[in-house]
């Protein structure tokens, strides 16, 4: 019994630590502190326990218990639903929305992380069962490192170039370089935009990137991230200065316009490069035969 206790404890600790390290609350302010984080730590603990208990259950052998563990693991599918529902509800009261693609991406990450915790706990307790508890210090950190390394997705900076663009008007049309953004009627608004507006061009490096930028969900994610750091001068009944990203239809690059509380063009470019490439928006045309042929 004592032997199994140490196996389980090692697995649970490794799994829980893994969840803790992967739980990041950054500028996106998600999950919220402290209750949102507690929910995920608690779920992480349950996931870690499941993974850790699996090894003694198999070794015993008690296959009924193993079957029940598999059933219990199914519960983590609900994590995705929970996150999706939560974020979608909050979305209704947001001035600048995350967009469904971003929410789906976040929800998926939360579900996946629980499975990673289960794997980490399982592997650690398996190794401890065979080799003794000192091995936990080797396998645990290795699993955590791999979880973080392998699950970090692409960032926009890897697939696009971001260059400053001039904001100007052609009649009533607001443009960033040659990309039409929107129609602005009021002269005061025009003046404000010319004084304070910032524009950048987001140029895809290849055809995959062009398709990624083509997805409105990805553009909304860019805008959301930018606004959550630099702020925006939009209010509930004043949508005139809404940040927008529009496509140059011939070339496929984006023009992004915004009026920020912190008008710093350099940081705007840096932030855009750090935006995650959404799984659901990622273009993969170059992986297909005809896509590659058509590209040249």
């Amino acid at each position: 019994m004592d032997k199994y206790l140490i196996v389980i404890v090692c697995g649970v600790v490794a799994g829980f630590l893994s969840r803790w390290i992967m739980l990041r609350s950054d500028y996106r302010h998600y999950p919220t502190y402290p209750h949102g984080q507690l929910i995920h730590l608690a779920l992480g603990f349950i996931a870690a326990s499941l993974g850790a208990v699996a090894v003694p259950a198999i070794m015993k052998p008690d296959y009924t218990a193993v079957t029940f563990l598999v059933l219990a693991a199914q519960q983590f599918r609900d994590v995705r639903n929970m996150e999706r529902e939560n974020l979608s509800k909050l979305e209704e009261t947001k001035l600048i929305r995350r967009g469904n693609d971003y929410i789906e991406g976040i929800a998926r990450v939360f579900e996946a992380r629980n499975y990673l915790v289960i794997f980490t706990a399982f592997l650690t307790s398996l190794v401890v069962h065979w080799g003794g508890w000192p091995y936990a210090f080797l396998v645990g950190p290795l699993c955590i490192f791999l979880s973080i390394k392998m699950m970090s997705g692409q960032q926009l900076g890897e697939i696009v170039e971001v260059v400053p663009g001039t904001v100007h008007f052609q009649g009533a049309l607001l443009m960033v370089e040659d990309v039409v953004i929107m129609n602005v009627g009021l002269p005061e608004t025009k003046e404000k935009i010319l004084q304070e507006g910032m524009g950048v061009l987001i140029k895809p490096k290849n055809d995959d990137a062009r398709l990624t930028l083509h997805a409105p969900g990805q553009r909304q994610a860019i805008i959301h991230d930018v606004v959550s750091i630099l702020g925006s001068k939009v209010d509930t009944a004043e949508p005139d200065l809404m940040p927008l990203a529009r496509k140059q239809v011939d070339q496929g690059y984006l023009g992004l316009f915004m009026v920020a509380n912190e008008p710093d063009l350099d940081y705007l470019i840096h932030i855009i490069k750090k935006v995650p490439v959404l799984e659901s928006a990622r273009g993969t045309t170059l992986e297909s035969f005809y896509g590659r042929k058509a590209a040249d």
């Binding site: 009649g171 009533a172 129609n183 602005v184 009627g185 009021l186 009944a237």
Partner: peptide, 25 residues
């Protein structure tokens, strides 16, 4: 026209667009 459309836009929570023929919507 500018003044009225600005006031209306504030009340309606909308945005003023210029059709460039002396018509604002």
């Amino acid at each position: 026209m500018e003044k009225t459309s600005m006031l209306l836009a504030r009340v309606l929570g909308g945005m003023v667009h210029d059709l460039e023929n002396d018509v604002f919507i």
